[in-house]
């Protein structure tokens, strides 16, 4: 009798453990695999465009000359959206989590979540029919009074279908998701830290500043990054709202274009190496998104020691 009583116990539990760890590993690898396939596909489709004769491409310029303007346009639209949406989203989230009476907070939270579920084409349609005409008078005013700033050089667009309008629509689109995530983070602030601040004689706002915002900072960055991802890749709203054209500094004239909208608008009527050029543009967008996320992670990681995770 040399059998060890400790070797054959609980085989059922062991099996469950194995199934779970395998399932988790498969799910994890699947993400990497899909990402890898997308990258390979994009690179493969892009190569002909990178080496093509400029004469075969749209506009008769080389791919790199063409994509530069699109990168700038994409970044400008996303930057406007973030600048407008982040403060509002953080403010709304704080109001819901720390200021509003509980019943109002629940209702508001529900509405914000609902806003996040509206398809982008709706936002685009609203942008072009309501927002763009409404913004024409302010643009005219800006061109007259702030025209010396290159961003607001006149003459202002008569339709309002400009980069600034597109940025505002994007801001409205990403605001709900940023609000929703920020609110969840704010609600997770440890009671202990809030009470520590209050016991020192902090007002409500000081408590938020000392205890809530520092705790939530990495979460806010993540929320903004998700919003940014959506803004960078947004296609339909931009395609509808922006009257595209060559790259210009002014945000209140028609002009500029983003990568995603360019792909959507040009794809149906492209063929051959022109299609390859659009895939190459997609690859560039992919790289930009990746780079922006890595920079954001790096910023968060730099303050890890003070994150409260230890």
């Amino acid at each position: 009798m040399s059998s060890n009583a400790l070797t054959d116990s609980g085989s059922a539990g062991r099996a469950g453990d194995k199934i779970f760890s395998t399932a988790a590993m498969v799910a994890g690898s699947l993400i990497l695999f899909v990402l890898f396939c997308v990258a390979v596909f994009l690179v493969k489709e892009s190569i002909p465009a990178l080496t093509a004769d400029p004469a075969d491409l749209k506009g008769g310029v080389s791919f790199f000359a063409h994509i530069g303007a699109l990168i700038v346009g994409t970044l400008i639209a996303a930057a406007i959206a973030l600048l407008l949406a982040t403060p509002v989203a953080v403010g709304v989230a704080l109001f819901i989590s720390h200021y509003a009476p509980r019943r109002l907070a629940q209702g508001l939270g529900y509405i914000v979540d609902l806003l996040a579920a509206i398809p982008s084409v709706i936002y685009g349609a609203w942008g072009v029919t309501v927002l763009a005409p409404a913004l024409v008078p302010p643009y005219v005013w800006l061109a007259e009074n702030a025209g010396w700033i290159p961003l607001f050089t006149g003459p202002a667009s008569a339709t309002g279908k400009t980069m600034l309008t597109a940025g505002v629509v994007l801001a409205v689109m990403i605001m709900p998701i940023v609000t929703s995530l920020s609110r969840e983070i704010f609600l997770q602030t440890p009671k202990l830290h809030e009470e520590a601040a209050l016991a020192l004689g902090a007002t409500r706002w000081e408590m938020v500043r000392v205890a809530v915002l520092p705790f939530a900072r990495p979460g806010i960055v993540s929320a903004v990054m998700l919003g940014l991802g959506r803004a960078l890749g947004e296609t339909m709203a931009i395609a509808l709202v922006l009257s595209s054209g060559p790259m210009i500094a002014s945000l209140i004239q028609s002009g500029n274009q983003t990568i995603a909208a360019e792909i959507a608008l040009a794809f149906p009527e492209s063929s051959g190496v022109q299609t390859n050029a659009l895939f190459a543009a997609g690859l560039v967008l992919f790289v930009i998104t990746l780079a922006v996320n890595m920079v954001a992670r790096w910023i968060v990681a730099r303050h890890k020691e003070f994150s409260g995770a230890n």
Binding site: L192, F306, N310
Partner: peptide
């Protein structure tokens, strides 16, 4: 002032 049951220094501060 008040001192609490569990130590609660602000984690993000030196």
């Amino acid at each position: 002032g008040m001192v609490f049951q569990r130590p609660n220094p602000f984690p993000t501060m030196s």
